[in-house]
Design a protein around this nucleic acid. Structure first.
Lengths: 165, 165
DNA sequence: GGAATATAGTTGACTAATCAACTATTGATC
DNA sequence: GATCAATAGTTGATTAGTCAACTATATTCC
């Protein structure tokens, strides 16, 4: 079966009256499916959630010295106010460690553990495979185009948000 | 300030090694921001969540006879197993009614109320405004292109999911 | 150097999402 | 027409997300 347009997929009788609405719905729907695909792989292979994986990736990128708790939030794909408890869970699984900073005792530095790193290693290949497969029908040029359009969309969303406050 | 690429936005030091990963991250991030923008408008103007709004829209489209509970799930932008309690909340707010079907007593038909319809009416304009504003920098052709690329991405995700099972 | 303010993070209360197990009803099969 | 399986929806238990209030530490500025 070949599902194509967002309208067919959501079984809508009438076409969208506004293209901007159609674009929003399609964007949200596509991202939701992509997220479930990725989270499924992460859960199956690593036993952690997508958010937890995202934190581990950020901490891998941060290296030896780690990162203060709230700096992690800024780098998350999906921001959350529940960062403390998210990291609690990662600490319980011994995938990260926390240590209060000596020069500024308000800050708590988070670091990824050896076990965390090897969990990420284990996930690299299956994730790459799923992502490549999902975008296999898009040519290089198409992916570049998609990236550019998404960049512009984000900037538009930011501007709209600013103009509201 | 002009945030542009996803890499800058998430403060990544190194560029993505795979374009497919970059596309996934950008897609998820962009959709997340779009969702928060839309949900913010819906919450501010209507006092309901984005999911609840989505259900009301579906029931408006279904018309007089309403729709069985589980048929709503298939039409949701973001599927949820919590449909029963989602509709419980809408019923508590008197935005929908439920009635057991007489010919098949397993099914429960959900219908939008007068109050539900007028809440949707109230939201139409501010939502259209926000969506149009967010995509204002994209030309007609760009939006069409974005829609097409998202359609193809969804199909790729579906195929990948199938091949996993 | 002491009061006011800002920053970093945690906690509690509440709401919502998820998964599995369950009830009720209908349809299929022999 | 009794049994077995399928469908429609609900409920309970667990986990996770959200918002506001709070503690502790650091900075500012008179």
């Amino acid at each position: 079966m070949a599902m194509t347009t967002i309208r067919e997929e959501l079984k809508q009788k009438k076409p969208f009256t506004r293209k901007s609405e159609e674009a929003f719905v399609s964007l949200l729907r596509t991202a939701e499916l992509a997220r479930r695909l990725i989270d499924g792989v992460i859960e199956a292979e690593g036993g952690i959630t997508g958010q937890q994986y995202n934190v581990l990736r950020i901490l891998r990128g941060a290296g030896e010295k780690g990162l203060p708790t709230l700096d992690i939030v800024d780098r998350l794909v999906e921001e959350t106010p529940g960062i403390t408890r998210l990291i609690d869970r990662l600490e319980a699984k011994e995938l990260v460690t926390r240590e209060r900073c000596k020069t500024d005792r308000r800050q708590v530095f988070c670091r990824i553990t050896r076990a965390g790193l090897s969990l990420l290693d284990k996930l690299d290949e299956p994730l790459a495979h799923a992502q490549d497969a999902a975008l296999a029908t898009l040519k290089k040029k198409d992916v570049a185009q998609l990236l550019e359009l998404l960049d512009r969309t984000r900037n538009g969303v930011y501007k709209t948000k600013e103009s509201q406050s």
